[in-house]
Amino acid sequence: MYNGGKILLGIFVFLALATYPFYNNIGKANARPEPSTDTPAIQKLAQKKCIEPEAFMKSEHMQLLNQWRDAAVRDGNRIYVAGDGQRYDISLQNTCMKCHSNKKEFCDSCHNYAGVSPYCWDCHLAPKEGK
């Protein structure tokens, strides 16, 4: 084999580099995002619950927001009747964000962790936050 040593060294260097991220993270538990629901509006709620059950909101809020968008913009239906019969104004800015006024600790904490950057905020105004 010509230049066998160099080739082997090359393969070794390549493998070392390619697998570096995995070795580097071994044993380090990635901190789970902890979206904070500690906002003045939520503190004031008698019953601290979202418009739908938490598990549903966690996994399906994006679908719900899509349905909201279509209902409000396309059909002019701006009231959402939740599973428990409660009615809510369909509005990201004026319903969701009035409670979740801490976009950085709430929305961003999971979105950053998951590496997604939804474009909601290109148009919808985020609540003014101190920091």
Binding site: I79, G83, D84, I90
Partner: peptide, 15 residues
Amino acid sequence: KDNVEAEQFRPEPGA
């Protein structure tokens, strides 16, 4: 019973 679906979306009453 807890999750009976009425119409999920509707116009505002005073629209």
